[in-house]
Simulated scan of single mutants.
Amino acid sequence: MVEDDVAIASVLHQALQEAGHAVDVSHDAALGLEMFEIEPEDLLILDIRLPGLAGGGVELCQRVRSISSDVPILMLTAIDSAASKVAALDAGADDYLTKPFHIEELLARVRALLRRAPRALPPRLTVGSLELDGSTRRVRRSGRTIELTAKEFAVLDYLMRHPGVIVSASDLIDHAWDSNYEGYSNVVPTYIRYLRRKLSRPGEPDPIRTHRGSGYSIGADT
């Protein structure tokens, strides 16, 4: 997300995180472009009036499009004019939201853009007896519903999108937290432990395997 209003960026950052998204934030268009070039994102939220580039968010959108033709881009602006909307859409934006807006609408548009993205995976995942529905954020195992926090859901979602693959702790942090995470080093093992407690009843096999020194995996025989 590239938003020069620090207060607005903070509110949106928190709302998106609470919805289970890992969010990288910049307040400058040039820095935002540099961040995207280093590590491409699943979706971009760009303000139109941004410092750092002469053309602001519209120029940033154009430059991102020259790098990636498929990353979804949502533009935010306080300018409610047809000309502004046309400029944003012509620059390559997929959607446009005028300030002020309801957080619920922003989150709904983010979900819709992620569903339509060419790289998007099916919202419903099944690995063995585990089922995960990304659209409703529900998890079931052997027919019973399991309540997860946003971070627990994000960790399980990433593991289930890579069945049988050893996923490193750093990959999980990139997916479930963000690039600026500087918390304690045991955060991933802690959340894996939380998941194990919630996903398995007595007598059921542990769905998550630990590969010492490498990471974690989830297999079809869970």
Rank of each mutant, 00 (worst) to 15 (best):
residue 201 R to E: 10
residue 69 S to V: 13
residue 195 L to V: 07
residue 38 I to G: 07
residue 221 D to Q: 01
residue 45 I to G: 04
residue 20 G to Y: 02
residue 123 P to I: 12
residue 130 L to P: 00
residue 13 H to A: 14
residue 63 R to I: 02
residue 193 R to H: 07
residue 84 S to K: 00
residue 184 Y to W: 15
residue 100 P to T: 06
residue 72 P to D: 05
residue 5 D to Q: 12
residue 210 T to K: 15
residue 61 C to N: 05
residue 3 E to D: 09
residue 133 D to K: 02
residue 144 R to H: 06
residue 219 G to V: 02
residue 133 D to Q: 09
residue 149 T to D: 03
residue 188 V to P: 07
residue 78 A to D: 13
residue 13 H to T: 12
residue 118 P to V: 13
residue 74 L to P: 07
residue 45 I to M: 05
residue 67 I to N: 09
residue 77 T to R: 04
residue 42 D to M: 07
residue 77 T to L: 09
residue 116 R to G: 09
residue 197 R to Y: 05
residue 203 G to L: 14
residue 96 Y to H: 14
residue 190 T to H: 08
residue 15 A to F: 10
residue 176 A to W: 01
residue 193 R to T: 05
residue 72 P to Q: 14
residue 163 P to F: 03
residue 61 C to L: 12
residue 178 D to Y: 08
residue 90 D to F: 00
residue 43 L to V: 10
residue 59 E to I: 04
residue 146 I to T: 01
residue 222 T to Y: 02
residue 158 Y to F: 14
residue 107 L to Q: 11
residue 154 A to Y: 03
residue 29 A to T: 03
residue 72 P to E: 10
residue 43 L to P: 02
residue 138 R to C: 13
residue 206 D to V: 08
residue 190 T to P: 06
residue 19 A to V: 03
residue 42 D to R: 08
residue 32 G to C: 06
residue 122 P to Q: 15
residue 31 L to C: 01
residue 91 A to M: 06
residue 35 M to S: 04
residue 174 D to H: 10
residue 13 H to Y: 15
residue 61 C to W: 06
residue 194 Y to A: 11
residue 35 M to G: 06
residue 49 R to A: 08
